[in-house]
Design a protein around this nucleic acid. Sequence first.
DNA 1: TTGTATGCGTTATCAA
DNA 2: TTGATAACGCATACAA
Lengths: 359, 359
Amino acid sequence: MTAAESSAAGAASGSGAAPVTGASSGAARGMPTLEMVAELAGVSRATVSRVVNDSPKVTPEITRSVQAAIAELNYVPNRAARSLVNRRTQAIALVVPESTAKVFADPFFASVVQGIALFLAETDYTLNMLISSEGRPEKTRRYLLGGNVDGAIVVSHHSGDHSYAHLGQALPIVFGGRPLAEQNGSYYVDVDNVAGAITATEHLLSLGRRRIATIAGPQDMPPGVDRLAGWRQALGRAGVSDAMVELGDFSPASGAAAMRRLLDRGGPIDALFAANDQMAAGAFSVLHERGLRIPGDIAVVGFDDDYFGATATPALTTVHQPAAQLGAMMAEVLVKIIEGVPVERVTSLPTALVVRDSA
Amino acid sequence: MTAAESSAAGAASGSGAAPVTGASSGAARGMPTLEMVAELAGVSRATVSRVVNDSPKVTPEITRSVQAAIAELNYVPNRAARSLVNRRTQAIALVVPESTAKVFADPFFASVVQGIALFLAETDYTLNMLISSEGRPEKTRRYLLGGNVDGAIVVSHHSGDHSYAHLGQALPIVFGGRPLAEQNGSYYVDVDNVAGAITATEHLLSLGRRRIATIAGPQDMPPGVDRLAGWRQALGRAGVSDAMVELGDFSPASGAAAMRRLLDRGGPIDALFAANDQMAAGAFSVLHERGLRIPGDIAVVGFDDDYFGATATPALTTVHQPAAQLGAMMAEVLVKIIEGVPVERVTSLPTALVVRDSA
DNA sequence: TTGTATGCGTTATCAA
DNA sequence: TTGATAACGCATACAA
């Protein structure tokens, strides 16, 4: 992912002919309207509308005839018109900050999106994905407040970014990840990072390890602080020292650097809890470099259940995040808020330890 | 990515109070309308509309006063109303087949999406992402044909899936990847797989290798056949044997299996072109397993420039795909089609060889 | 239970 | 150049 500066650009090599596609939207032409259905069914538009929105009061017989007409004409209600009168768009925005978009390739994030989309597919909400450029956030703001969507889901890379929190009063918003500072009253769904870290650390303890170091994440990111806290708690309960801490920034390089610092301290280390798999990857390379065996000399547990884990040698034991469920839950919570169903402000999903070979 | 069956589900642990959010859309309440702007500016609605759509014929003076009113009221045009009269939604669908969604975590795919979103962010089109379940494709069809979007971009995993091709007559559609069978006249943008494979193979040849094997992709997928074809062409030109071919399905496991078969043939091999990095990864493990050195004994080149490549040992030389540009180009082509600007039916983007340590 | 009439916020046609 | 006014397709209060 390092080198590879592609020179690719607008090089277009044609082949087929390029028939000027007349103009404008093809589908919009001659779409059947509610009125046409009414005519065909021999009823009024109001009645058709009732059938479409399955209003309780309508004769079964007439209902069937209307449905037949609908089927025959292949009628499908015009969203814009409906939205205009309802004041509801049936659309939900998925806001992803540009900085996050760069690491869009993060499988965790990808799964979250997938979960959202899959859940929404079962409802009749549409997902409007938009990348918010940090440069001019007003554009996003305008879009969100412009009545284009009924609600929004904000996911930022390693969570904690609630810069759109203030919009929560104007528009239903659900965040992915705990906010850094306790927010007034924003909704969010998160994975239980503290519990996950505890599980990971206890696993190490159960293996008999007592010299357990950690490479923690940035302390200005909730997952960073929570995972460190979990590690501390587990160690505290076991009465084991929690002195061996080095910080990283969740990148492999920072993980490698932290591992070096840990090793260079000279003290004994028989286990490592890395706050994410990427940093564990960095640690792996340093460990190999110094001829230390995993898990023989040092057992290591990661966090995230990245793509790295399964293919690493040895395969990495790590804490799995239910990414897709996380996404689905965010969507579910948002839909509930939109529809006025009471929901808790914070929803937290459990992690699961995936035991492989490294610990 | 193998194990890890998370038991996570709907475990919700609350914390804050759950104030019933009244009901319905917050943003829709009391949004300023064009009429209000007109009133404030002391002009007619028509004039305001003209200013908004910057029609040429309108006094500079009056324009300013209207703009002032717009700013003061923080007016934003109602999309639904506009769409109702225009018959244009300013929305574009991104259709991703469910099977593709599963491998959503594919960084290549993710970058494509990113490219699309980024490009669209500069236009005033909205991106409606929808996962089409193979189970009932009618739902997607209805959505697409229901006048919800002005056009669609269809990306499927390893391309070639043009099952929505027939909709191309009713709605502007751009596909990612060359169709398997020559389609009537669908638009698509693709990477030049043949050229990429040629470049890769020629690189191997330039290194003096002459016993060049390949692990090809499925021959029912365009990239699979194109990359194999490219390899063959390069070999043919050099007058070198193209007998060493084994097929895989683009997965690491299949790559490993293919590598084993290749080695078990007993003939000499001094280089390998894997049709994608994932299969190269599988090959790597087998090579290591058998004590073969890379690139000493066997030089290997992959394709895709996956996450695997940079972190592999040795780092993988591979063919980079301009994923983001691909996405951007798809969006660009679609917008042109929608707006009636002539475009070539097929656009192909160049790849770039990324030389690292494996060849 | 069904139909009639009105309005949702814009754009477009036609006069002025 | 600007202003009335009529659609656009649908939902609903009200009348029947």
